[in-house]
Design a protein around this nucleic acid. Sequence first.
RNA 1: GAGGGUGUAGCUCAGUUGGAUAGAGCAUCGGUUUUCUAAACCGACGGUCCUGGGUUCGAAUCCCAGCGCCCUUGCCA
Length: 599
Amino acid sequence: MSIFFQAMTVWFNPAHSIEQILRKIAAETDGFDSTFEPGVRPADPKFGDYQGNGVLGFAKKRGVNPRELAQRLINAALASEKFDPALVELSLAGPGFINFKLSPLFLWEWQLAYSTKADYRTGARALKDGRRIVIDYPSANTAKQAHIGHLRPMVIGQAIARLLDFCGAELIRDNHIGDWGTNFGTLIMKIKRDAVDLSTLEDHALVILNEVYKAGSAEEAAQPELRDISRNELVKLQNGDSENTVIWEQIVEISKAAFDKLFAQLGVEVDVTLGESFYRDKVDRVYKELVDIGLAEESDGALVVWHDEVKKFARDSERPYPFNIRKRDGASNYASTDLATILYRLETFKAEEVIYLTDARQQDHFQQLFLTTEKWFKAKGYSLPELRHVFWGTILGSDKRPFKTKSGESVKLQALLDEARSRAYAVVTEKNPDLPEAKRREIAEAVGIGAVKYADLSSNRTQDYVFSWERLLSFEGNTAPYLLYAVARINSIFRKVDLSPDAPIAGASLPETDSELALARKLMGFVTALELTLNDLRPHFLCTYLYELTSAYSTFYNSDKVMVDDAAVRARRLILCARTRTVLMTGLELLGIQPLETM
RNA sequence: GAGGGUGUAGCUCAGUUGGAUAGAGCAUCGGUUUUCUAAACCGACGGUCCUGGGUUCGAAUCCCAGCGCCCUUGCCA
């Protein structure tokens, strides 16, 4: 690095640093003031690495020539000596853009300064520095076999949790299971009617429970008088009846055991499991406080909260739509327990932020929940955590209808995972018939499960997406196999040269070829990708980045041979391989996908 | 009726929140291997960004009015 510019170190996050420096310089430059926002963002590589657009809007408001103003800022920036010309080049372009082009020296210094996962982690920690966040996931329901609808909360929730953790949040993963709902009345009714002995069911217990519930519901539909019995069983349970409590405990245990099996396969981690039942003695305080502050009132025998300022929820709207927090029969519902849960998370976990993960259909519920909480906490003087609802669309089949089996049943999650494994195994066997079977099984596990996860993460979560085995297991395009394959090829190179990918590599020259430079640039983009992903909690930003990085690597791999005779060239290419491997592996792990040594 | 999501290449999807000539993958056509894993790479073809107005230096992106599809809309979660 130039000795004349000792103030300038290689910025971990260049867009941020350039933005900050420019803001400071502008404040001391004629024609600007402290309201000036430089607007620095990544640029199309043909223009540079970053561009600043802020001058355009600023100049327009003041009726001055944007090009002249931008030039003045460039001059001031150069005079400040904050921009070492050996590292970054500034230029004026178009109607008043400022382009920043990083030199090969900068790109290289960056690779040398930030080389390990720990380095990235250290840099990323600033993003959520110590913030106490409760993430509500995957919040499975009980007494029901998991189906494809349970995939997204597990996969998306896991990715977001890992990301928050990586970026420095103090995270509590709270599995808020649905273990206290109306369905237990029906279940207990049917279990008693048929004298089902839950303790003898063993492995297939959940399947039986699933069928018991279905049969029970069907009978209720046919014989409405059974509903009263079910309702009574629920009331008895809620009042602590010992016989019903034993049955309830068995059901919950069976459900948890089944979900634990899926969690293990999908890598879902949970810190606490506090289901709805945990809050059964905490809802009375909610009713009391909401009534005391005049927020909740009786309506048709139920206790409800009206939000008249929102058209849809107002009491005088065409279809009244209150937030029902206690049912007419006095039983709690998920609004009651959700409210009690927020209070608990504030008082016990000291949550500064609570993130809920559910599908898009529950948006009304969360809007009402958040509105109610805001008013309630304000009236009581409780501090209000930031409340976020992270939602997603439906998984569709090729007919654009929700993904179903050929017979029209919902696809069981276990069956989906098994099919992913067997399809991946078939492909591995076709491509690498000589590998031992155990090895092929191991690869199929990572590729199959990884592919299903990646398909779920790589498109914008708020939209529905079309599920296609052929596409998600393809090695072309934005897929897990494509990314995993790149990692495997890098590993192969290091085996060939007999070096550890994590070992320091000395004697490298600066990158020169187009594909080396493009790859080095892309590697720096990891920070921006993390930031973007975190802001909106949309994992597909990270996926898109990893795909682009892999694509840049593949181009490099095909055009620039690593194992060449020139030691300096070979060293720099090995460094690029090592960095690509680190970023890809770090990114894949954040997404919950296990990288492979070989494929 | 109200609210939310959505509409971009034949198909599946991106598009860093208003920036420069709208991008990928698949499909189609053509090319690359005595070279580190060809499960790869390179190139060509392909666009009324649903329609019509508006805002401005600049719009796929923002505002208004329509149209299409999906979802939600009182005691399931």
